[in-house]
Structure formats: structure tokens, C-alpha cells
Design a protein around this nucleic acid. Structure first.
Length: 270
DNA sequence: AACCGCGCCTGTTCGC
DNA sequence: TGCGAACAGGCGCGGT
């Protein structure tokens, strides 16, 4: 599934391919994504140019020359394709004057497409409460300490909470906690400063490693982008229930936290 | 206010 | 072997 590193990779590829291009048509084959696709509003983008492309959390933001911003979230299984072909589960097609076609394809329809005034983006309900970007300068020990200080929920849920830290999904949460030797069950507020710092470094390390892997696997973005399973061979704990911990050889266990699987080593993570 | 569980959706895996 | 049940998960939403 698209995680922050993959969304970042897609963002760069979109930049290379679609920047300065003028939209010529919007086709909504199926408006039933996570939220109803605002077909009529999207048509307002026709004849306007993409002037910049950004990423915030796992949202892709395409700024158009008429001061509207297209918001795209890929959810679990969303893909953006530029290969000009048609596939099952294609939902939205943007055609450009250059002839290029950007297709939004999504098996499970957990993704979303929305639009807003560029100037109002920071007030958009999906954007306004987003937390710290882990690969940017505000992701500091001090800020994390502040964020975690009054949180009674578990550290795993805390780092997955996009209102606190963005981009850490279920996989990277388990991986980062293993990397920093912290139990996913610990209360967020119970972390010592050195643990917060270890976790901070682990999140950065994990995301950067995945970004690197995503970058190499997805360089043929023109043909297809999506979940190529690029990082799965590097998992230390995720999806490794019953297998030996790569550090101490004890069996990795799986628990459920808020309905989501968490994988960890009870020996290495305290 | 903070937190937790639900539901969306479909392809894949699992168990009988 | 075949079929239905369970599972996977990002994340907004509603209930507590």
C-alpha cells in the first residue's frame, strides 16, 4: 500500500511528467470513493495548468493555475497511472492537452479525490489537523516530547495518529518501534527522552530506507505506479509472527491494537 | 477532550 | 476441491 515514501516518490514522478501541463478533460467513471468525487467541481480545472505539485502527509496536492488545488489520497490500494491503458477499477481519468492521461485506479476505494481553493487548503477538513512531517525539520525530540507528554494511548497508536505524526502507517509503526527497542504497548507519555530520540531516529531511518527502495522500484512510474511490494523483504517484524527475531531469535508475536495487527519482540522491546 | 471501535471495499488466504 | 468466513488496512466518523 502507498506509504509516505511511496507517495513522495509518486509526487516526484508527477512533477516530472505533469508540471506545466494543461488539463483538457475530466472523466469520472465511478464517483464512489471514500467520499463522493466532486465531478462538477473537478471540471472547473479544465483548460487550466498544473503550476505546482506538493505532498502533505499522504495527500498529493496538485495546484492549478486558477487557484484550485486537487487533493488525492490513495488510501490502501489507490494507484495513479500514466501508461494510457485501461484497467479494472479505473475510477477517474484526467486527460491533458499533451495527450497524457492520468488515471486514478483503486480496488478497494478507500482513497479520495477532492478539490478546494488553494488559499483555503490549510483549512480543509482533511488537512488542517495533520501533525508533524517526519522528514522535515519540525520532527524534533522536543516537539515529540511535547506531543507525547499528555497522551495516555499507546506509543504505537500515537505514532500512527496522523494528527500527531503523519506518514507512519501500520507497517512502519511496528518496524520503527522494533528498531528503537520500545514496546508498542507502552503509554506514549511514559517514554523517556532517550527513547523518544531513538524512536525519532528509527522513524526517519525506516521511512528513508523505504523511500530509497520505493524510488528505485518505482522509477518506471510512467508505465505504472503502485504497491510493488518493494519494502517487504526488509521487514524486521512486520508480518513475521512466529518467526525468529533478527536480533535475539525469539519468536515475533502478533497482537491487536485498535483492530490492527502489531508485530514485536517481547524480548528486545521494552 | 481524548480515546476507541466501526465501516468502507475487494482480492486473497484460511478453515471446514 | 469448493465454498464461505476471515483477513488485510488508512482514516474519518460517531459513540462514550
Amino acid at each position: 500500500m502507498p506509504e509516505l515514501p511511496e507517495v513522495e516518490t509518486i509526487k516526484k514522478a508527477l512533477e516530472q511528467n505533469l508540471l506545466d501541463q494543461t488539463l483538457s478533460a475530466v472523466e469520472v467513471l465511478n464517483p464512489k470513493l471514500r467520499f463522493k468525487v466532486p465531478t462538477k467541481e473537478l471540471k472547473a480545472l479544465v483548460d487550466h495548468k498544473i503550476i505546482s505539485i506538493r505532498r502533505r502527509s499522504k495527500y498529493l496536492l496538485l495546484d492549478f493555475s486558477n487557484a484550485l488545488t486537487l487533493i488525492i489520497h490513495l488510501g490502501m490500494t489507490g494507484r495513479l497511472l500514466l501508461d494510457g491503458k485501461s484497467y479494472k477499477h479505473d475510477h477517474v481519468i484526467l486527460t491533458f492537452k499533451s495527450g497524457q492521461r492520468l488515471t486514478y485506479n483503486d480496488v478497494r476505494k478507500f482513497g479520495l479525490i477532492d478539490i478546494c481553493q488553494s488559499g483555503d487548503l490549510d483549512n480543509h477538513k482533511l488537512i488542517k489537523n495533520l501533525g508533524i512531517e517526519p522528514l522535515e525539520s519540525k520532527f524534533t525530540k522536543a516537539n515529540l516530547k511535547e506531543i507525547f507528554s499528555n497522551k495516555s494511548k499507546s506509543i504505537k497508536l500515537a505514532i500512527m495518529d496522523a494528527n500527531l505524526v503523519v506518514g507512519v502507517g501500520n507497517i512502519y509503526a511496528s518496524e520503527s518501534l522494533f528498531e528503537s527497542k520500545i514496546s508498542p504497548l507502552r503509554q506514549a507519555s511514559s517514554l523517556k527522552e532517550f527513547e523518544i530520540e531513538n524512536l525519532r531516529k528509527a522513524i526517519i531511518k525506516t521511512l528513508k530506507a523505504a523511500l530509497k527502495a520505493g524510488g528505485s522500484t518505482l522509477k518506471d512510474f510512467k508505465h505504472l505506479s503502485g504497491d510493488s511490494g518493494y519494502f517487504q523483504h526488509s521487514f524486521l517484524v512486520y508480518d513475521r509472527e512466529g518467526q525468529a527475531c533478527k536480533n535475539c531469535k525469539k519468536a515475533i508475536i502478533r497482537i491487536k491494537q485498535q483492530g490492527r495487527s502489531t508485530f514485536y519482540c517481547t524480548n528486545c522491546q521494552k
